[in-house]
Deep mutational scan, measured.
Amino acid sequence: MTEYKLVVVGAGGVGKSALTIQLIQNHFVDEYDPTIEDSYRKQVVIDGETCLLDILDTAGQEEYSAMRDQYMRTGEGFLCVFAINNTKSFEDIHHYREQIKRVKDSEDVPMVLVGNKCDLPSRTVDTKQAQDLARSYGIPFIETSAKTRQGVDDAFYTLVREIRKHKEKMSKDGKKKKKKSKTKCVIM
């Protein structure tokens, strides 16, 4: 069974824990209790493949930012979460993405942009803004509501699919490099 290491990042209060708990335990946590770091595991079937999701729910508070490099190193894919009623959390996505790329030393890291709290009427981040940002990053965008469960499975499952595509691409690139290195030079 394939294991996928997913990391949920975003500013404090955007609903990272609520999304994760909704996926794992099928219930909505409405009281806000700032996370330092929590880890969850769940076995699911995605596109006919049974897999184990190892999900790291991270601290959004700035005082825990020193811990970010460590979990970013171990993560295979990242859910970059903002709240649709919090423009600052949307603007912060850029910083999370840049930090992930720096730590992973790669421009090509599996990510999904997630606009959470889409059940709320007080939207300050337009869907088109988020779609445009995701398009500019070359990553999928999904709106979710941890409260109603809308888009929750889709967000995590899409990230797994992005990781699969990335692994497939990397193995193809690896095979191309191996083929090239088999060419021999004969000096007579």
Rank of each mutant, 00 (worst) to 15 (best):
L19T: 14
L159F: 02
V45Q: 15
H27P: 00
Q25L: 07
R73T: 10
A18F: 00
L113C: 09
T58N: 01
L56S: 07
I84P: 14
L133S: 04
L6H: 01
I84T: 13
I24W: 02
D30V: 08
K178P: 12
K16H: 00
M72L: 10
L23A: 12
D154W: 05
D132T: 05
E107Y: 11
G60A: 02
L159E: 02
Y157I: 09
A59M: 02
E49D: 09
K179V: 10
Y32P: 02
E37H: 04
N116W: 01
Q61N: 13
R135G: 11
P121Y: 09
H27S: 13
K176Y: 13
D30T: 13
E107P: 09
M72H: 06
N86V: 03
T74W: 08
A59N: 04
D30L: 10
T58F: 02
D132H: 06
G15N: 01
K88G: 07
D33P: 00
K128H: 05
M188N: 13
L6K: 02
H95M: 04
E91P: 02
V112P: 02
G115C: 12
H27W: 15
I142F: 07
S17V: 00
T144G: 03
G138R: 15
R164C: 12
K88Q: 12
A11C: 13
K178L: 06
D47I: 01
G13S: 12
K5H: 09
K178V: 11
A155G: 12
S145K: 06
D33F: 01
D173T: 09
K165H: 11
E62D: 09
E98P: 01
I36A: 01
Q61S: 13
D47W: 03
V112Y: 09
V152N: 11
Q25F: 06
K101D: 03
G174I: 08
V114C: 04
G151R: 11
T35A: 00
D153S: 08
R68K: 12
K165T: 15
R102Q: 11
T74K: 07
G10N: 01
E107C: 08
E98N: 13
G174F: 03
V9M: 11
V112G: 00
K101R: 11
V29A: 05
T50M: 11
Y40P: 00
D57Y: 00
